[in-house]
Design a protein around this nucleic acid. Sequence first.
DNA 1: TTACAAATTTAAATTGATTACAAAGTTAGA
DNA 2: TCTAACTTTGTAATCAATTTAAATTTGTAA
Lengths: 134, 134
Amino acid sequence: MDTTGQYLLGFGIRPSFQRIAIMRYLNHNRTHPTADEIFEVLRKQIPTLSKTTVYNTLKLFVEHGAATYIGIDEKNARFDGHTAPHAHFRCKSCGEIIDLEMDIEKFLPKNFRGKIEDVQFYLKGTCENCNKRG
Amino acid sequence: MDTTGQYLLGFGIRPSFQRIAIMRYLNHNRTHPTADEIFEVLRKQIPTLSKTTVYNTLKLFVEHGAATYIGIDEKNARFDGHTAPHAHFRCKSCGEIIDLEMDIEKFLPKNFRGKIEDVQFYLKGTCENCNKRG
DNA sequence: TTACAAATTTAAATTGATTACAAAGTTAGA
DNA sequence: TCTAACTTTGTAATCAATTTAAATTTGTAA
């Protein structure tokens, strides 16, 4: 059995051909892609692929913890196959989104009495490269 | 001159009738409303109010620092007149968004070489009330 | 005042990401 | 092999947000 298939089974997800392709894309492209970006790339390999399938699959992945939803970009939902807790930075100039490896779970408030299930830490500004260029 | 008008001037925003009404709504309703919610309430007081004006004005407020954009809700943009740094919690059950007063700026990474302009810290889960109800 | 230019507001039309839906195709177990 | 459950597909619909251009209001200078 395919490695990515095993990986999906570990999250309780039945590994279809399309799901494996999308999971593999997420794990090999750490660019925090949108659903549309994934669709446009994978349709070249899977001509029958439907955009609805990409949306359905990404939602399924998020529900099962195999991917995380990233709301740092006001225009589109983005997705991350890197599921260990970390922060994100988005450059307002070039649009690039980069990972910031930090344990954001240690920032949780001590006295909060609800149940916390998701933690997201977003930073926005100008990246080093765009800063140099002016 | 109106207090809210002075407040807007402090951010470099010319205080029109509509802008004062929207700023006043934000400052008196700490519910993190959507543009549509603001529109539906204020149109009762200002029958000629246009939804475009609400969108334009909120964008202007964010650009001038008089309000902050909140992206914790995947469906709609939300806005906060409370501009001092703090975190937000959204209950996935009842949808309520509450402020968590904490100095999120002290969480910034030390070694990051870009310029950080915005910081957002979002928590999602189940609030105390919804938790009790099951 | 009056007149004019700039700023603001408005309503309608459009865009574009996402979802709903129903039909077609696929899978797995009896 | 049969069949029911699951998955994929394409189209249509939804709806927040933006675009656009005309109308209105404001500030200022004559």
